[in-house]
Nucleic acid binder design. Structure first.
Lengths: 120, 120
DNA sequence: CCCGTATACATAGAAGTACTATGTATAGAA
DNA sequence: TTCTATACATAGTACTTCTATGTATACGGG
């Protein structure tokens, strides 16, 4: 399924920060992990991800180092202390919105069920 | 807590559609309901909401009618059929992202716990 | 050995969107 | 009468984003 642009945009940062909270990682592997974790539902283009990584680094939330692995040049990223704090804030904010949406969907589903309209 | 701009932007449409799935409503009351459902965590400005309502109407997801209530002129909005479908899609997309983030946060929390760093 | 695919990172440009600030109008309460 | 709450509107600036395209290199298959 193709996600809307604003949802992709809004979730890219928290997803990247959460992935890097598990340990340092490089761009291509991040894209891969997102694809697997979402069961192929989220497919990030590399041209989408790298500007996000650059911006996060510019804002001091992550830091990078060049390295060679398996004969490959790779740019590894890791969280900074600011990044850990940002991750926590993003999680709190996302939870607020999610909780609000969940209440609404629960209510809408109940109302919808009784009115025989189509909600999932 | 103040939500980031992109999260506010990304969640405005699904929230509005979910509220209108419960029945027609007007701008000011929508803002009020969002504030209450989020326990004062989400505070929408009216200047934020009305352009969203206008855009959703323009895209045919909602429809409006003017009415007087309690001596007040109010613009009531309701979902269209397209709007119901859009609501469903938004919910599916949001769930995909949420599920992905939840897996990441669960993993990061476990890793983080063992490494004595600060995650909620 | 050559070619195509996968891996790996980068960036310019156009497009679009968003929010803030400010506006008008009116009802109600002190 | 004044101030606050209610109710809706919109212009402008600013920012961000993604797409398309680029370069580079390793690996696998024919």
């Amino acid at each position: 399924m193709e996600l809307s642009k604003d949802l992709v945009a809004a979730s890219a940062t928290p997803i990247v920060l959460a992935i890097l909270a598990q340990g340092e990682n490089y761009g291509y592997a991040i894209i891969d992990q997102v694809r697997r974790l979402s069961e192929e539902q989220i497919q990030w283009a590399d041209g989408m991800l790298y500007p996000v990584l650059h911006r996060l680094e510019k804002h001091g939330l992550i830091r990078s180092r060049m390295a060679h692995s398996n004969g490959r040049k790779r740019k590894y990223y890791r969280l900074t202390t600011s990044g850990s704090h940002a991750l926590k804030r993003h999680r709190e904010q996302w939870s607020i919105v999610h909780s609000t949406l969940s209440k609404l969907w629960r209510t809408a589903y109940v109302l919808c069920g009784s009115q025989n309209c189509r909600m999932a």
